[in-house]
């Protein structure tokens, strides 16, 4: 009972409030901007070179505002926005018109999920293993070189790594395709050829994510392990002549991996926004690519949908982590 009152309820209240705050912000911010989606759409029609006389343009603006429901008072819009949010209805896409936004998101989600989940598992294993070893065996020459490499890689902006990979593996040594999720025109189905095709296309994007992610995780894990090394129980184990490998795996790594599990789970929050740059660079047909296209074509509804979902994903995974942490880590007291 004490757990529910002191731990669960405050966190649930905070969860709801933060969601309301975040979603309200993305509702209000675009409405404060000088030119909204309507003006953008009209400007785009004019960009295509069609002559529009001012009167017609004005009427278009009026008609579009009515169509999008932007002529109503702000409060009414806000209420309608929330009511539709509960049914996960973000309206139709403005560019591929009658298709609902949710259908588009549903089509792209499996690609992003597959890519992110695979890379996250790789990053978790590789980063923690190398980081743990580097933190524990600090004199090892090979690990020190690796450490230096990761130290340069870690602060590197992501797209530069991606760009390098494309230049090297798609132009100079063309063994991987430049981009895309699968060969255009290939028959889609659960055939071996198609799966192989998808895997080959996913290699470069995955590799770029793994390199940068492993470097960052490695840096953090090394510091955590160095911290754990100083603990009294590790010194005690050394004095008690516990085998070195046992100290490393049972005493140090087990304790150091705990905070990393949190980071692993938080990775899922990036499902809707994290892979934007990757997918744009590699033209990978996931959520990021969808939002990029929405950006280019000012497809406002799609952007609102993706942003809202990513806020909910982020807050939900934070909440789940808060609730699950005591299960992983018995040292956390529920107060």
């Amino acid at each position: 009972m004490r757990f529910v009152r002191r731990y669960l309820i405050p966190r649930l209240i905070q969860y709801v409030l933060v969601n309301i705050l975040g979603i309200t912000m993305i509702f209000i911010l675009p409405r404060l901007m000088p030119n909204g989606p309507v003006e953008k759409t009209v400007a785009q029609i004019q960009d295509r070179g069609a002559y529009t006389d001012p009167k017609a343009a004005e009427q278009t603006v009026k008609a579009l505002k009515e169509l999008y429901g932007l002529d109503q008072p702000l409060i009414t819009q806000y209420v309608i926005f929330w009511r539709r949010l509960f049914t996960l209805d973000f309206g139709p896409s403005l560019v591929s018109f009658p298709t609902p936004v949710m259908t588009l998101i549903g089509q792209s989600l499996p690609w992003t999920f597959g890519l992110l989940f695979t890379t996250m598992v790789f990053i978790f294993i590789l980063g923690n293993l190398f980081g743990g070893l580097a933190g524990y065996f600090r004199q090892n020459r090979f690990l020190r070189i690796l450490d230096g490499v990761f130290m340069v890689l870690a602060p590197m902006p992501y797209y530069i790594i991606a760009l390098m990979l494309i230049i090297i593996f798609a132009y100079i040594i063309p063994i991987f395709p430049v981009g895309g999720g699968y060969t255009i025109g290939a028959p889609i189905g659960f055939t071996w050829a198609f799966i192989k095709d998808v895997l080959i296309h996913a290699t470069l994007p995955a590799l770029s994510l793994i390199i940068i992610g492993t470097a960052t995780t490695h840096q953090i894990m090394r510091l955590i392990v160095q911290g754990v090394n100083e603990e009294d129980y590790v010194r005690y184990a050394h004095i008690g002549a516990v085998k070195e490998s046992t100290v490393f795996s049972r005493y140090v790594m087990r304790n150091a991996t705990l905070p990393q599990i949190t980071r692993f789970a938080m990775g899922f929050s990036g499902l809707f926004s994290g892979a934007l740059v990757t997918e744009v660079i590699f033209a990978y047909p996931g959520i990021g690519f969808l939002s990029y296209h929405a950006i280019l074509t000012s497809d406002y509804n799609v952007l609102m949908g993706v942003t809202t979902l990513s806020i909910i994903a982020l807050t939900t995974s934070t909440l789940l982590m808060d609730l699950l942490n005591p299960l992983f880590d018995p040292r956390i007291r529920l107060t």
């Binding site: 933060v18 993305i26 911010l29 675009p30 953008k40 950006i295 942003t307 990513s310 982020l314 807050t315």
Partner: peptide, 18 residues
């Protein structure tokens, strides 16, 4: 509230408009 906002997407949304 600010910490949980997906910054890249929101900056994208705003930069797109202005």
């Amino acid at each position: 509230g600010f910490i949980v906002l997906p910054q890249l997407l929101i900056l994208t949304l705003l930069a797109l408009l202005i």
